[in-house]
Computed example of a mutant assay.
Amino acid sequence: MSRGPRPFQTLRDAIPIARIRGIVQVAERGPESLFDFTIAGAKPVAFVRVKYTESIRAVLAEILRDCDDEIRRLRSVTQDAALSCELWLRSRYGTWRFFRVTADALVELRRDGLPLGGKG
């Protein structure tokens, strides 16, 4: 039995992950929303957009293409060292991938918000 539409399921499942990193404030959803929630109390403060995907193992070029709208919206948030704009992708099986969206790249992150392969 379904637990609801996948976009809402994805957002609901993202909140416990985000709470590990800090205080979560969910944004009001609408056609012009730039992000789904913020994570405060952590450094940097994160603006996060979540998305369900069928192709969780996609290469960066495919993610850039398939998530163009979400990436464009996150890039419209002011870029600053104290802020992190992040795209979180979830598969139907609950597998997650996390990315920091910068002005010209996607940087894959660990669940804790640090760069994948980085120390911390």
Rank of each mutant, 00 (worst) to 15 (best):
I20E: 11
P7G: 03
F8Y: 14
Q25S: 15
D13E: 14
R19V: 08
V107G: 00
I71N: 06
C85P: 04
G113Y: 12
Q79S: 14
D68R: 15
G41K: 06
S55W: 00
A40K: 07
R65E: 15
L83M: 12
L89Q: 07
G41L: 05
E70C: 04
I71W: 07
G30E: 08
L11D: 01
P5Q: 07
L109I: 13
L116C: 03
W88P: 04
A18F: 05
R90Y: 06
I20K: 10
P7D: 02
G120P: 13
A81M: 11
L89C: 08
C85E: 07
S76A: 14
G22A: 02
A61W: 12
R110A: 09
I39S: 03
I15H: 03
D68L: 08
R110Q: 14
E54Q: 09
G22Q: 08
T102N: 04
A27K: 03
A58H: 04
S91W: 06
L11A: 08
Q25N: 15
R3C: 01
D80F: 07
F99Y: 15
E70D: 15
R6Q: 14
A42G: 14
D66P: 03
Q79Y: 05
A61E: 15
T38K: 09
R75M: 09
G4F: 10
Q79V: 11
F35E: 02
R90H: 03
R3H: 10
L60R: 12
L87F: 00
R100K: 15
V107S: 03
A40E: 15
R72S: 13
